[in-house]
Amino acid sequence: MRFMLLVKARQAAGETAKPPNPDWLETMRSYNDRLEQAGVLLASGHLHPASSGIRIGCGAYGDSTDIEEGLRGKAGADVASFALVDVRSKEEAIEWAVRLPDVGRIGVGEIELRRVKEMPDIF
């Protein structure tokens, strides 16, 4: 089963997200390495902060309306890092998630675990 681990930085209400600090990046790098060592990591990455993100508005098919820079309070806005893992159960995904170390020091607010759709649930 594939799960997306969405690691969100702690943010005060209304605060703009900042780029991940070196502590965050190093902790995630080492954590991803452990996932890799366990043979469960498929992909990982860190997202540039929401303030440099772009929103593409959707009108009718194929017509994009406005393109807006900077995101705040929208889906994925506060996700700083992600890891896509392939594990045997939801509980295993949770166990991995709670093993992210130094969450207080690096400023993790929340980890959201989302299960990736499998055929035939996709279309």
Partner: peptide, 10 residues
Amino acid sequence: QRTIDAVWRM
């Protein structure tokens, strides 16, 4: 129970 199973496998 499922958590213990997961921990065991890990």
